[in-house]
């Protein structure tokens, strides 16, 4: 699968930091998103996902560090970034007094790469009434309009900030279908943040977990799921664990039961665990993305 993505990274963050006074919202974030891949950014509320996205779109000035999108430095070439990136924010602020048709007419002239036919297609598919004013549109319709504006100019990169949060299941499905239909063709890059881990699992080639502004893990989705296991060990009477193996992201001892979530799990790791600790029995189970996510966060918070 490695040869699948075109060369170069679509998005590159180096030491990106945002500080407000003494609180650090994004802390030295570095990651790279290959072109043509779909990248899922997940994290608890307040982890800094939205702030990161705003910085890479040039909507917020970082305190330090840099962001490059399609090779352009966001701080100096933000116009080039905006011309080739479609952005769908969490809350839309489209001019409420404009009609849908006027919004489309307004935005159309701002992009060289606008595709009229695609726009018409999407207006039909999303069942948007050209004559309705934005202030009279339902939340789902506004979200679809926002998506239309982001993809009708055929961007190289699509950035979505919590795109389906608060949507009913039907609109969510229509929205995701719209994204997949128009943009996901292996050449375009998609970065999205979401609380819906099922969607992340379905759509993301790679996933990154943000916790309190810091990058906790960044991995290929399937690899993450395959290599992270939950080990439940029953300890011998009156004994406590002696040492946890490397790669433990979360652990808990409750009576005689020692539960650990281990990343990069292997037979060797299990062997060493059994050798170094007073263990009676051991079971290993696979985890879903939600469990892995929760364990990473719980593990982080236990340390701090």
């Amino acid at each position: 699968m490695s040869g699948q993505f075109p060369a170069g990274s679509a998005i590159e963050l180096v030491g990106l930091t945002k500080r407000y006074g003494t609180s650090v919202v994004v802390d030295r974030l570095s990651l790279s998103v290959p072109r043509g891949s779909t990248f899922g950014l997940i994290g608890p509320n307040g982890a800094g996902k939205s702030t990161t996205i705003k910085m890479l779109m040039g909507l917020l000035a970082p305190t330090s560090g840099s962001a490059r999108v399609l090779g352009f430095d966001v701080a100096t070439r933000s116009r080039d970034v905006r011309r080739q990136v479609g952005y769908v924010p969490e809350t839309h602020q489209i001019y409420r007094w404009m009609r849908v048709g006027e919004v489309v007419g307004f935005v159309k002239l701002l992009y060289d790469s606008w595709d009229d036919r695609l726009c018409e297609d999407l207006l039909d598919r999303f069942a948007l009434d050209r004559n309705k004013r934005v202030k009279h549109l339902s939340k789902g319709a506004i979200a679809k309009l926002g998506l239309l504006l982001a993809i009708a100019h055929k961007p190289e990169v699509l950035v979505l900030d919590e795109p389906v949060s608060g949507m009913d299941p039907i609109i969510r499905e229509e929205f995701l279908e719209g994204v997949l239909q128009a943009v996901a063709d292996g050449r375009r890059t998609i970065l999205f943040s979401s609380h819906n881990l099922d969607d992340v699992r379905r759509l993301a080639d790679s996933v990154a977990i943000l916790c309190e502004g810091r990058l906790v893990v960044h991995r290929d989705t399937d690899a993450l799921l395959a290599s992270t296991k939950r080990v439940t060990a029953v300890l011998k009477d009156g004994c406590l664990p002696r040492g946890a193996p490397e790669g433990v992201i979360w652990q808990r001892v409750a009576r005689r039961e020692w539960s650990l979530t281990i990343t990069d799990f292997s037979g060797e790791v299990l062997g060493r665990l059994k050798d170094e600790n007073p263990i009676e029995t051991v079971t290993v189970e696979d985890l879903g993305l939600e469990d892995i996510f929760k364990d990473y966060i719980k593990g982080r918070r236990a340390v701090e």
Binding site: Q4, T38, L180, Q181, A184, D185, G186, R202, L203, D205
Partner: peptide, 12 residues
Amino acid sequence: RALAVELLVNPN
């Protein structure tokens, strides 16, 4: 693309 849309998964 068609199967990706139908199943709601990444085309890759």
